[in-house]
Computed example of a mutant assay.
Amino acid sequence: MTSETTRRKNSRTGIIAGLAAAAMVGLGFAAVPLYNLFCKVTGFNGTTQRYDPVAAAAEPKVLSDTVSVRFDSNVSPKLPWKFYPEHPRDTVSIGARDMAIFIARNESSQPVTGTATFNVTPLQAGKYFTKIQCFCFTQQTLQPGEQVRMPVLFFVDPKIKDDVDARDIQEITLSYTFYPVDEGKKAS
């Protein structure tokens, strides 16, 4: 093998390795949005659906079937709040809109800002649990001793009855966890 052939092979190998590295970096940046899209479409990991006002014209029909919805609440130990559902359980008609109220109270002597994340279990129910209005991912600032009522409007899509893996679900749990907002990273 000549030195010219070796140099071409080394150049080609270097270009291929560089392109592979660039593709990996690109996939690294795209991973989070792609994962979020995957979860939204499939309901993976208990991801709920977001209410689409355009699709509201074709409201789902209300079925005579019902499902029990359990409301769970958690608070980070770093957040001095009490947080709980007004009613820990509700029985809802599949396809009907319903509302749950969560109550949060700042137990400290200073204003505190928190934000909530959520999930739905069993996981296969996530893609059929549609939130119309929710307080999650929105920063909530409570003054010392302040108590607020936070509504969640939702429905369980009737398509759940067409899914072999989800149609026999009798109870869905909607769980929220409140965390303190890092004041250094607080949105302006």
Rank of each mutant, 00 (worst) to 15 (best):
K82M: 06
E146D: 10
N10L: 09
T42W: 05
T91F: 03
L37T: 03
F154M: 12
K40F: 08
L123M: 11
A55I: 04
T115S: 11
G184I: 00
E107T: 14
V152C: 06
L34P: 01
Q49T: 07
P60S: 06
Q110F: 14
Q143T: 07
T177N: 13
S73K: 08
S68V: 07
V62G: 05
A56W: 09
T42R: 04
P53N: 05
Q143R: 13
R7E: 12
L34K: 06
P158K: 05
P60T: 08
D98N: 12
K185E: 10
F44M: 02
M1N: 06
A21V: 12
V32H: 08
P111H: 11
V120L: 05
E107V: 09
S11T: 06
A100T: 06
R50A: 09
A104C: 12
A23T: 06
P77I: 08
N119M: 14
M1E: 08
Q143Y: 08
V181F: 08
A31L: 14
W81Q: 07
S73V: 02
F155N: 06
V25L: 13
Q124L: 07
R7Q: 13
P122H: 08
R89I: 13
R50L: 03
T47C: 04
D168P: 00
G18S: 14
V75A: 11
I103M: 11
P80K: 09
P88F: 13
Y179D: 02
Q140D: 02
Q124Y: 01
E171P: 01
P85E: 05
G26K: 04
P80A: 14
R7S: 15
D182Q: 11
D90Q: 15
M1A: 08
V148K: 10
S108E: 12
V75D: 04
K161W: 03
S68F: 05
R89P: 00
S68Y: 01
A57F: 04
A58V: 07
I172D: 03
Y84E: 15
A96S: 15
F137R: 08
A100V: 11
D165Q: 15
R70V: 12
F83E: 01
C136A: 15
F71A: 00
Y51W: 14
L63N: 08
D165P: 01
G26L: 14
A20V: 15
V181N: 07
L142Q: 03
K131Q: 11
S76V: 06
L34M: 05
P85W: 12
I94Y: 10
M99H: 07
Y84T: 14
V92C: 08
I172F: 07
S188F: 11
Y51Q: 00
D98V: 01
I15M: 07
T91V: 15
T6P: 00
